[in-house]
């Protein structure tokens, strides 16, 4: 187990370097950041030269990357063109996104698995068909449509919860964005759970559990659901990273100053330091979540052992 974790951690190093380098190259492929900074106006050559020197923009790309990574290991993510340190942006953005992700993830887990279980147990019934149709609808409608519609109806028209999440973020104000952010993943979790539950409910060990005279509740939770959750956990783990990085649309709709919000601004202004910095942290989150899922897999399924 220890060896396995070590090996996985070592494997992360090339993945980390590869992904950050790709992001670095892509951001620079967007065009000259100095031109983007000045927008329509032609920059003063002297100022432009100074900025280029300050941000190492005259070096070849690989050298810029090496210098950037060198700074990164001293926890120096550089500064934005407006002079703020990226670390200070990260410090405001990540807590907001973490809160939003926590709310969304909870909704996704509770309702996704709940609906999936009900639907899988009563295959072909009214509940099952409703879940199938509803999840199909949710999956096929783009998030920004669900977001704006729910914001208008629940937030503005009926005023049940705040329409935007202000500062400081409260649980109540995060409820609606959480639902919107969770909706698509929730639908996938429900469908995945439904399939595995339906499949496993025909398994021999479930029949054994019934034959042992266990109450239905115990059969379903201890035997059926416990086994059915193994593939669902895999999905949830990778989805955790996707929720954090993919909150871009939701955060804009509900005016949450989180990762997606700053990332969007960084891309629009071609601010490589912001974009690469945020993505670097996201990459780490992704890798950590993946490792956690693989370890959890062994806990959930004793047939899988890592050596």
């Amino acid at each position: 187990m220890g060896r396995y974790v070590l090996r996985r951690l070592l494997q992360m190093i090339p993945v980390f370097i590869g992904t950050t380098f790709l992001i670095f190259v892509m951001v620079h492929a967007l065009g000259d950041p100095v031109n983007a900074l000045f927008g329509d106006k032609a920059p003063d050559p002297a100022v432009a030269a100074q900025i280029r020197a300050q941000y190492n923009l005259n070096d070849p790309l690989w050298l810029q990357y090496v210098k950037y990574m060198g700074n990164l290991f001293r926890w120096d993510f550089g500064t934005t063109f407006s002079g703020q340190t990226v670390t200070s942006l990260l410090a405001t953005a990540y807590p907001a996104t973490l809160k939003l992700t926590a709310v969304a993830f909870t909704i996704e887990v509770v309702f996704g698995i709940g609906f999936g279980l009900i639907s899988g147990l009563r295959r072909g019934g009214v509940a099952d068909n409703s879940v199938l149709i509803l999840t199909l609808v949710v999956i096929s409608i783009p998030t920004f449509v669900t977001g704006y519609v729910l914001q208008y109806l629940i937030g503005v028209k009926w005023g049940i919860v705040p329409a935007t999440a202000g500062d400081p973020l409260t649980l109540q104000s995060l409820l609606l964005p959480g639902i919107v952010l969770a909706s698509v993943s929730l639908a996938y979790v429900a469908r995945l759970t439904r399939t595995t539950v339906a499949e496993n409910s025909k398994a021999d060990y479930v029949r054994t559990a019934t034959a042992k005279g266990l109450p239905r509740r115990r059969v379903v939770i201890n035997h059926l659901l416990r086994n059915s959750l193994i593939p669902v956990v895999t999905f949830l783990g990778t989805d955790l990273g996707a929720l954090m990085g993919g909150a871009l649309v939701t955060e804009r709709i509900f005016n949450i100053h989180g990762v997606g919000f700053y990332l969007y601004q960084g891309i629009v202004r071609q601010n490589s330091n912001t974009v690469v910095g945020f993505v670097t942290i996201l990459v780490i989150v992704f890798l950590a979540a993946n490792l956690l899922v693989d370890l959890l897999y062994a806990v959930l399924d004793p047939r899988i052992r890592y050596a």
């Binding site: 398994a203 021999d204 060990y205 029949r207 054994t208 559990a209 201890n222 035997h223 416990r226 086994n227 193994i230 959930l300 399924d301 004793p302 047939r303």
Partner: peptide, 9 residues
């Protein structure tokens, strides 16, 4: 093998 639950001791 299939009649015993694989995830419980």
């Amino acid at each position: 093998l299939s009649s015993l639950n694989p995830v419980h001791t």
